[in-house]
Design a protein around this nucleic acid. Structure first.
Lengths: 155, 155
DNA sequence: TCCACTTAGTGCGATTTCGTATTATATAGT
DNA sequence: ACTATATAATACGAAATCGCACTAAGTGGA
């Protein structure tokens, strides 16, 4: 792989990392005490995909250890934003369900970003951002499918 | 702000977050024991911008508390990848300098990603990624400049 | 100069994240 | 049915991250 090509990919992920850092900070500044971005992200995932998933599925989806997901879910339960019920099909596992406050919390958290989005919109119109989405989704889908191979290709 | 516009921006940052998560995991899988992504990121920042910066400047650049940067720098010093020297212009502060092993480590860490980049290149050619860079950089620059206003506009 | 105020770095305790080991349940082979 | 193996969740301890408070040093005004 030539230097120029490597630099293109590296700079891309560099930009991604910085953008993520900046948006994470902006988002967490809007969240109430005791709730972090992972809490919101789980609510968002349960809404976008579907609720009733197991903690293990969520841990794999977020690329975090199971113990971390247990901790995050404990916090969400404590705040009444999700419910854990036993999985009738598997006595070992549980299933995670959104509560009404959980759904409401997610919607309000997104709406709370409007001031940020409005300032951004003044500099970068929605069309320009929308134009990036297909390519980003494509790269994301590839990495998502590719991640398992990382282990196999270690040596 | 209408729902459609909000959704565009939200989905954009959603993709950014997932991409960051996936690439972070892939990157950390390549790093040796005892060194995390923040360690690499600081080395990269010192290389790209310039070394000799103060810990406080780095903490602000990375949007982390000063104590976190102290911790990260302590680890880098322990591994001999950076040096801390007193700041002759300000007795309170220090300056962080890259060492030769630090520079080498960064280059090797980037090169270690080649297998990942090569697999990605087979699905998403460099041109397509390069085409995204200007827009991403523009959005990143805006957020970077905008982040201070978050506090002011809280209420 | 002196004194109040600000700033850079760090010590300390709390929370989050993570790796390992453990328990309970499911699955497969006999 | 029984045993060995695999899997889901968690308990536990280590490391990372963070907020608060403290010390040392710089800044500005009387």
């Amino acid at each position: 792989m030539d230097d120029e090509t490597r630099l293109i990919y590296f700079r891309f992920f560099n930009e991604i990392g910085i953008l993520s850092q900046l948006s994470r900070a902006a988002m967490e500044a809007r969240l109430p005490d005791g709730l972090m971005l992972p809490h919101f992200s789980v609510l968002n995932h349960l809404t976008r995909v579907r609720d009733g998933q197991t903690p293990n599925t969520l841990a794999r989806a977020f690329q975090v250890p199971k113990t971390t997901m247990t901790h995050t879910l404990t916090g969400l339960v404590k705040h009444g934003l999700v419910e854990m019920r036993p999985n009738p099909k598997d006595g070992r596992s549980k299933r995670v369900w959104l509560t009404e406050p959980g759904r409401r919390f997610r919607v309000e958290a997104i709406r709370a970003l409007d001031p940020n989005f409005q300032r951004l919109a003044a500099a970068i119109p929605p069309d320009q951002v929308a134009a990036l989405l297909p390519a980003l989704a494509e790269i994301r889908a590839f990495l998502d499918a590719d991640r398992d191979r990382d282990d196999d290709a270690e040596d």
